[in-house]
Nucleic acid binder design. Structure first.
Length: 436
RNA sequence: GCGGCCAUAGCUCAGUUGGUUAGAGCACUAGAUUGUGAUUCUAGGGGUCGCGGGUUCGAAUCCCGUUGGCCGCCCCA
């Protein structure tokens, strides 16, 4: 029994598991590239203050952090957003707008293991900087939807809940609440789905009982399921900010509708994404069955680049992780059987034939074909079995009879047909066979 | 950080009220088959029963601790 094992919450990726991971990454990358995003990368280790500045000191308990040999307090990155804000902020004036960037990277959080959550995980992060209007949200939500659809997931499998922290602020402000109270109410809203009326306990402890009329309006706001209901509910409000915000909503939902994506989108003001750094629209993708934690989440964070020392730069982004996403694909049977296959398996008769075989193997590999052969002499039967299991489409037979005739036998592993070609024409013959 | 359940071969699991040398299927390797891949048959490798301590003549089995895993709470950037 092995004396060592991987640390709690960390995963080994054996070849078949890495194949699944790479399958996901490949489709993500392909999709995001189709939307015109550029890939970037960054250090795994960052100054601890980068995260403290954003989220406060208490965040440290959830980080892998330590003091390096130079006395610097550092942390393994728990998310990409502060890093990408720093990078964009440093070169903001030199970057073409809109800035559309993405990354696929590993993150670390010192947390308790749970289904769909470990201490190390991978995320796709996609962000748009420099666009303050809802056009950026349209683009990102469309991208998020396509990142899921690319795997064969449909509106039967997932949906995106769309909400708006600004609207909550305007609405509750118009009802007479100050900012601390608004944040208190949003905290309750965040928990309402799970705890019902108990969600307001925290608010009551801090500010006293919430006025019954206000509370009913909050609960009514949570019932809103469409733009029409939103407009109807807010039509009474004279606030100009609300009117212009509704115009943003129309633009965002109109854009998504024109893209044919309305069936994936649900208006749901119950999503407020914690109380972190989000400043406007927020959205989260969930599985329809409600069995898993959120598949993806994102929103607007217009203040963060400036907060981290850059220029004022509006931004929207989302992230989706590999763990919950992989669970969803497997639940829906959308994870294909991924077998690494080769083009050609070279069957070698014995020591005498290895020379000519090796010449062909090297030539075929140099020409870009995937070629395998037995490292040691093995019975023919075994070699054909190995060829079959390796997924080879062709077997090249270098036997004593063939070599004596100056030919190589090419066996099509699919239909079991065989033909002989001159030994010097192997590369051409293989190319013809694989293309035909 | 808190609570519940769990831990036997690479995987899925048997293992009787505590009793001799801990088993099966799958997987892997080899042979049957020294020139042709799905089957079949045979054999083999692989375990200090998660780890440490205790009870006992005797522990995979009972008790305590510990580590790891699953699930829920907290949190979720």
């Amino acid at each position: 029994m092995a004396s060592f094992q991987s640390l709690p919450g960390f995963r080994d990726f054996y070849p078949d598991e890495l194949a699944r991971r790479n399958f996901i990454f490949r489709l993500w990358r392909q999709t995001v590239t189709a939307f015109g995003f550029s890939e970037y990368d960054a250090p795994v280790l960052e100054p601890l203050d980068l995260y403290k500045a954003k989220s406060g000191d208490e965040i440290e308990g959830q980080l892998f952090s330590f003091t390096d040999k130079g006395g610097r307090d550092v942390a393994l990155r728990p998310e990409m957003t502060p890093t990408v804000c720093r990078m964009v902020g440093a070169k903001a004036n030199a970057l073409k707008r809109p800035i559309k960037w993405f990354s696929i990277a590993e993150f670390y959080r010192y947390e308790r293991m749970q289904k769909g959550r470990g201490r190390s995980f991978f995320q796709l992060n996609a962000d748009i900087f420099g666009e303050a209007g809802p056009e950026a949200e349209t683009e990102l939500i469309a991208l998020l939807v396509q990142c899921l659809c690319a795997f064969g997931l449909t509106e039967q499998d997932f949906y995106v809940r769309l909400s708006d922290r600004n609207l909550w602020f305007y609405y509750l402000g118009a009802l007479g609440l100050d900012e601390p109270r608004i944040r208190g109410v949003l905290g309750a809203v965040d928990r309402y789905e799970k705890y019902g009326d108990d969600a307001f306990k925290g608010y009551t402890e801090q500010f006293g009982e919430l006025d019954a009329i206000v509370k009913n309006k909050v609960l009514a706001f949570l019932q809103i399921k469409s733009l029409a209901m939103l407009e109807a509910t807010l039509s009474a409000q004279a606030d100009g900010r609300i009117a212009s915000r509704l115009a943003d909503w129309r633009k965002l939902l109109g854009g998504l509708e024109a893209m044919g994506l309305s069936r994936y989108i649900e208006v749901d003001l119950g999503v407020v994404r914690g109380l972190a750094y989000y400043t406007g629209f927020v959205f989260e993708a969930f599985d329809r069955k409600g069995e898993l934690r959120a598949i993806a989440g994102g929103g607007r964070y217009d203040d963060l680049v400036e907060k981290l020392g850059g220029p004022a730069l509006p931004a929207v982004g989302f992230a989706t992780g590999d763990m919950t996403f992989g669970l969803l694909l497997e639940q829906r049977g959308l994870m294909p059987a991924l077998v690494q296959t080769i083009d050609v398996y070279c069957v070698i008769g014995g020591e005498q034939e290895r020379g000519p075989a090796f010449a062909a193997i090297q030539g075929l590999r140099a020409a870009g074909f995937g070629v395998e052969y037995p490292l040691k002499d093995v019975a023919f039967g075994k070699q054909f079995k190995a060829a079959s299991e390796a997924g080879a489409r062709l077997a090249l037979i270098y036997g004593s009879e063939e070599i004596a005739k100056g030919v190589v036998k090419i066996r099509d592993m699919t239909d079991r047909s065989e033909r002989e070609v001159p030994i010097n024409d192997v590369v051409t013959a293989v190319r013809d066979s694989l293309q035909g």
